[in-house]
Amino acid sequence: MSDVKTPNTPLWEVFIRSRNGLAHKHVGSLHAADSTLALQAARDLYTRRGEGLSLWIVPSNAITASDPADKGMMFEPTVSKAYRHPTFYDVPDEVGHM
């Protein structure tokens, strides 16, 4: 037994829309031979308590992720651009809410 290696089954990422009006949210992953079985397994594994109204299944290897090592160049340059936020601008109080 110990010398028999079980072949890998493809890995899928599961996203659930918990109710209409909300976006699909990543909830976890599972293994399945194909997308139909993956969708069924996601239903049985991740929606046993009424968690969802819609499911997305994505092959894990189809996701391209940013490298945490690039965090600095990817995300820090935005920090200095306060002028993209409404609070950057002074509007006289008399004008009221804008």
Partner: peptide, 9 residues
Amino acid sequence: VREAAAAYA
């Protein structure tokens, strides 16, 4: 069963 699912896929 696992082999069959893989073969079908």
